[in-house]
Design a protein around this nucleic acid. Structure first.
Length: 269
DNA sequence: ATAGTCACCTGAGCGC
DNA sequence: TGCGCTCAGGTGACTA
């Protein structure tokens, strides 16, 4: 999926065409996503007042509530012209009071779409989410604090959305490489100083990926259908058994909590 | 509370 | 070409 940078890229791509527009209708071609898609009649006629990201959710804030979209592993949202033929995995179109549609494509159907009446922050999927990594709340002190006495591998802690949001498998691997920390280290055994480095690495890698329009492995496209270019800047993800770009040591691939994990046994300790 | 596993689904890539 | 297998960006639910 779409991790934080890809979702942010999507928000920036589709947001400007939709803000101030009125929702005139929608077409659900396939409602069997992660949760059944049901959009209530109260959404019709609502004006979009803001499009934002919270964790990996896109939030289309309206006057009465918000449409909340998650892209799962393979989802993407694009602005297309009305009448554009729908493909096999184009599950939802939302229509507005101008000549374009917001179209959700999601081959694996792990994504989700909800409409929440009221404050979007109170939607059950968003309650209990951790801190945003690009805010000031996220720093070494914070990570060090939540890691206290935890035996969980640091990589898994980084990927726990109740702690910090938006960091998926690609960027967890990349941030740990940049910080020089082994993915399997027990979170509770890492020093405050190293957590300062890690928090900084997470922020840097996410910011760099956003600047490049995200990472495209197979199917991610931005709001206008373009792939992301951060793929070219990945140091470890997808490079197991290849030489480390810094020291030349062969990168090691292991599995951690069912996820592919790659690190440099020399640079990361 | 914490850590580990499973499930959901389609498509791509690989060996045979 | 086709078959069967493994793997893939996420995360809620469930188990010990």
């Amino acid at each position: 999926m779409p991790e934080l940078p890809e979702v942010e890229t999507t928000v920036r791509g589709v947001g400007p065409s939709l803000v101030t527009r009125r929702i005139t209708g929608w077409t659900i071609r396939e409602s069997r996503l992660r949760w059944p898609v049901h959009l209530p009649e109260v959404m019709r006629g609502e004006r979009v007042v803001q499009v934002l990201r919270r964790a990996k959710y896109l939030v289309f804030v309206t006057q009465s509530g918000a449409m909340i979209v998650h892209l799962g592993m393979s989802g993407s949202l694009r602005i297309v012209r009305r009448g554009a033929p729908a493909g096999r995995h184009d599950h939802l179109d939302v229509e507005f009071d101008h000549e374009v549609l917001l179209r959700l494509t999601d081959p694996r159907r792990f994504g989700s779409v909800h409409y929440h009446v009221g404050d979007w922050r109170e939607h059950w999927l968003l309650e209990g989410l951790g801190v945003e990594p690009l805010t000031r709340d996220f720093d070494g002190r914070f990570l060090h604090g939540v890691a206290r006495r935890r035996k969980l591998a640091i990589k898994q802690l980084l990927m726990d959305g109740r702690v910090v949001v938006g960091v998926g498998n690609i960027y967890a691997n990349e941030a740990l490489f940049r910080a020089g920390i082994r993915p399997r280290l027990a979170a509770g055994r890492i020093s405050r100083k190293r957590y300062d480095l890690l928090a900084e690495a997470v922020r840097e890698v996410l910011a760099a990926a956003i600047a490049d329009g995200g990472t495209t492995l197979r199917d991610f496209v931005d709001g206008s259908g373009q792939p992301g270019y951060f793929t070219n800047s990945l140091c470890v993800y997808g490079r197991e058994r290849q030489p480390c770009l810094v020291c030349g040591t062969q990168l090691k691939g292991v599995r951690l909590g069912q996820r592919a994990t790659v690190y440099c046994p020399n640079c990361q300790r």
